[in-house]
Design a protein around this nucleic acid. Structure first.
Lengths: 386, 386
DNA sequence: TTGAAAGCGCTAACAT
DNA sequence: ATGTTAGCGCTTTCAA
């Protein structure tokens, strides 16, 4: 019993997680509704700062100080206020506070997707750095879609975030950046590079160059660069360009560009065509690790073994690359730091510091998916002739 | 030149992404500071509803209606207001709106980590469902840590989210749930199951049972269950228990439990010990896919080939399982739906509907990491004797 | 060290 | 269909 998962929905909400594998009959289950503890929560209106002030026999201003500038409050008074507040389960209402102070103490983060661990790590780095300064992070995903980028930014501006970290498809002629500026909040690009706008990123072209150099050092001459749609990621374009330039400098033939329909999956037919013929590449540089894993799986399905028949190198250095067999070679980005530094810059900007772009170091992680180039008949002939 | 990555930091902020692989010399890069477009954003105080009202020659209430109940406003007036607002780049301030209306139109989401794509998908499902009702989602991660669970909930309550979706380490005697209740907002557990609190989850025990049944059908009798620390995940415990019960019913020896120090990595020594001896397991059921990948990698490093020497089945059905070679067998959860339904329940509760637990279907995804059990000498002897 | 008073931006109730 | 008024919870002068 074969079931095609790609377009199957488990429930009434769309779900598209699965491509491979059959469903073993008998493991289907039906939705189960458990009659259950219910009842809309009955809410006694929560205490406000005035209630606490009354009970603690102080003015509301003093209660406010107790939470925000406790050092200005008499220790005895402070203790009394905090005790009363604690008993009442009181916590200052950030909405009131934000409105009055004009500060939400929240930063916005706009990322293509969190399903790619690269961006999830960026988020965690951003959240950690923001929290150090008492800031929260509100994150939204765009799915590499320019319209959703605009919507996400609108939403965050409506929420009155005080700064925005954003990864966009392209930095040139992208109205999103003006949109943020018009919102009056500072922003920093993450992963994108730009001569115009502040950013935190690796040097994508140079990182790609280092990948090509590493492959060339292993004897690879015919190298392909695999990316998702360039329209959806200027990083992929920079990596491709960097790879081409590096190949030229090293005297290698110009790498072929294989553009897959998605950033996270490999089209088997496209790959089969690329691997066909005598001048087929011996190595592939993929613009991200999810794509690299997909390419390896597709190549395997086509009967090519990695790295024996084909070397594959990814980009990003996601943790699960270390758990692939063989381990995935990859050019790693410091994603956590990218998120953290981007927030660091924003928080600095809120204190009046200038926004300065920052280029973080990349690192090549050797892995079992890359090996020395096989010596092929065609090349042997060439050598004999020379 | 070998470099240990595990404890290396690229920059002044901690980073711990890499375990495998050497660094190819010469690819190091230094932080680069690009002198850059800077200047703290100069913000002319943004227009308020009163400015718009004045310019459009209407009362502030009418401007408010134009944005919130446009059908109540005369089309001409509406057009004028919207034009004025657009020219001024005006958007209603949600902070003011939230304070006055008592509704932030925001839900909170508390998850162990987003680096596991399972939870990232849950977030995306939650965000999509919330957005359908004009709600935003504020997400925080806890790293499977109970103290951070408390902090996360505090933060969200301070932000006055109107409901909370939360995955906790354990549901029993966990003060977090009372904490939320005390905050006066509805909540739903995600991934956790509970007889006491509303939840959205798969039936973990039954899913585990189906895994064991599938393995048994392939001839496996000696099966091990691999989990991370049970203290950090009651799901792992439920899956273990379900597997044990299933084994008993099927007449199999009780599965051994292998508890790894992390939910996302496999200790090679522990695994080596488990694989040692004549009665070593022929199959391993891992409580999540990241762990399964790690186990496969570790087994491979120990010279055991999957699935020839050892079958491995994961849990979660994360997308990259389809790109492993061989593909990862896994018991899949509908993560997107878990997030979406949890928000659906909360949004319903905000409209007065009861909170009802919901059990969503699991699905076994066959994969190349599971194969028929090998016929081993010890078993042959047994058979001869019988 | 504490208090009084004003108001952040918006919307809900009531009035017209 | 639109206006008037009051106040959500808090912080921030300014004054004591």
């Amino acid at each position: 019993m074969y079931v095609q998962h790609a377009k199957t929905s488990w429930t009434d909400i769309e779900l598209s997680s699965f491509r491979h594998g059959d469903v073993i009959p008998g493991t289907y289950d039906e939705n189960v509704f458990t009659a259950h503890v219910s009842g809309p929560t009955l809410t006694s209106p929560r205490a406000s700062i005035l209630d606490i002030a009354r009970t603690a026999q102080v003015s509301p201003a003093t209660v406010s100080r107790a939470f925000n500038q406790p050092q200005l409050v008499n220790p005895h008074t402070l203790a009394r206020i905090l005790a009363v507040a604690h008993d009442a389960g009181f916590r200052p209402n950030r909405v009131g506070s934000s409105l009055r102070s004009g500060s939400t103490r929240t930063l916005g983060l706009v990322l293509p997707t969190l399903r790619n661990p690269v961006f999830a790590e960026c988020f965690e780095g951003a959240e950690a750095r923001a929290r150090d300064d008492g800031y929260s992070v509100m994150v939204t995903t765009t799915g590499y879609d320019r319209q959703r980028e605009r919507d996400a930014v609108s939403l965050l501006l409506d929420h009155r975030v005080e700064g925005i970290v954003v990864t966009v498809t392209h930095t040139v002629r992208n109205p999103v950046l003006e949109q943020i500026a018009a919102g009056g909040v500072p922003y920093v690009l993450a992963y994108n590079e730009s001569a115009t706008y502040p950013y935190v990123s690796v040097d994508n072209a140079r990182a790609a160059k280092d990948v090509i150099a590493a492959l060339a050092a292993l004897g690879h001459r015919v190298i392909a660069v695999v990316t998702g749609p360039l329209a959806a990621s200027d990083r992929a374009g920079l990596r491709l360009a960097g790879a081409c330039r590096a190949a030229q400098r090293l005297g290698l033939p110009a790498p072929r560009h294989i553009e897959m329909p998605l950033h996270t999956d490999a089209c088997r037919t496209t790959l089969a065509n690329a691997l066909d013929g005598a001048a087929a590449p011996t190595a592939m540089f993929c613009s991200n690790d999810l794509l690299a894993a997909a390419v390896i799986a597709a190549a395997s399905a086509l009967g090519r073994q990695v790295p024996r028949d084909l070397s594959v190198c990814g980009f990003d250095g996601v943790p699960f690359g270390a758990h692939m067999v063989p381990t995935l070679a990859s050019m790693a980005q410091p994603s956590r730091d990218i998120g953290a530094f981007a927030c660091d810059l924003l928080l600095g900007a809120l204190m009046g510091a200038p926004l300065v772009s920052r280029c973080l170091p990349h690192r090549f992680i050797a892995g079992g998916t890359v090996a020395a180039a096989p010596i092929r008949p065609a090349l042997l002939v060439e050598r004999r002739q020379s």
